[in-house]
């Protein structure tokens, strides 16, 4: 039982960070019906940049955070301007290939600049553990979880109540109609990419705080894709739910299934399998909007 609770709580805590990262993917999709398969690489870059700022340049933590943010914003703007602006009405396969190409470039650049060796991440949040009876939870997991969740909450408020958020939702539904009302679609795309880029960088920092800085962070791209699809690609709440679900499921799979000799390594493919099963039952994910199509 303790085992189970331990795995459950750890899963929820990690899942919170997954959710937060997945939300960035949702934002881009909502704004322009585009998506970014280089998202995991952007998460990784955020982690590496913040690590460099803190560990290599010895900057104070808030300054390092600022540097990372500035970098993330620039990256978002550059990618949007150079690649995605002209691709907004491109077919889905073109978008997939384009962002996969970008993923290759970014991953290669990380290799070139930082090399393949993993690094320990400086402690930005207090270390230690919180003990609940026999259950031990690392403090940094808990803090990361709450930061992540607070961020998601802020973001959904942004979409619900601010003018910019509302106009992003409108533009995602009908670009031409949005333009006819004076919404600059260009501005919307920029805004969404910048938002997503910031979310990715922040997620990278939180993840690095948990698992250190390494090339494996790009694996988050795959995880994000599973989470987003599981939750429904255009639903922030869905991403939140699916992220936590995925965190729990992965931890459980690692904790229980991997004990069986013949199932070694199932933790890696478990998110995908879970997503596949859910998709068969709910083709638009847990909370995705059904697209109403008219011919």
């Amino acid at each position: 039982m303790t085992d189970f609770l331990q795995l459950l709580l750890m899963g929820i805590l990690v899942g919170g960070v997954y959710s937060q990262i997945a939300v960035g993917f949702v934002v881009i999709f909502k704004a322009g019906k585009t998506f970014n398969l280089a998202y995991g690489e952007m998460v990784m870059l955020g982690a590496y940049i913040s690590w460099t700022a803190m560990d290599q340049w010895d900057l104070a933590k808030p300054v390092a955070l600022l540097v990372t943010l500035v970098f993330a914003i620039t990256l978002g703007l550059v990618v949007e301007r150079l690649l995605l602006r002209r691709m907004t009405s491109a077919p889905i396969h073109t978008m997939i290939m384009l962002t996969l190409g970008l993923a290759g470039v970014l991953r290669g650049l990380v290799l070139v600049v930082w090399g393949p060796d993993p690094h320990a991440y400086p402690d930005i949040v207090p270390t230690g553990t919180v003990n609940l009876g026999d259950i031990m939870l690392p403090t940094n997991f808990i803090v990361s979880f709450f930061i992540a969740i607070a961020f998601v909450a802020l973001l959904s408020l942004f979409f619900q109540y601010t003018k910019a958020g509302l106009s992003m939702r409108a533009a995602s539904e009908d670009k031409v109609a949005a333009q006819s009302l004076g919404i600059s679609v260009k501005r919307i795309y920029q805004l969404s990419w910048v938002t997503a880029s910031i979310i990715a960088a922040l997620g990278g920092i939180l993840l690095a705080g948990i698992s250190g800085v390494n090339l494996g962070l790009a694996f988050m791209g795959l995880m994000t894709l599973s989470v987003v699809i599981l939750g429904g690609i255009d639903s922030i709440l869905g991403a939140l739910l699916a992220g936590i679900l995925m965190g729990v499921a992965t931890k459980m799979a690692e904790g229980y299934l991997e004990r069986i000799e013949s199932l070694k390594g199932i933790g890696e493919i478990f998110p995908m399998m879970l997503t596949l099963v859910v998709l068969l039952i709910r083709p638009h994910g847990l909370l995705g909007q059904k697209t109403v199509e008219r011919v």
Binding site: M87, M97, L98, L100, G101, G104, V105, G108, V112
Partner: peptide, 17 residues
């Protein structure tokens, strides 16, 4: 890294653009 990942990534991007 340059020849494997960056070059292929760039090749795809350039072609599609």
């Amino acid at each position: 890294a340059l020849t494997s990942q960056v070059a292929y990534g760039l090749a795809i991007i350039v072609f599609i653009m």
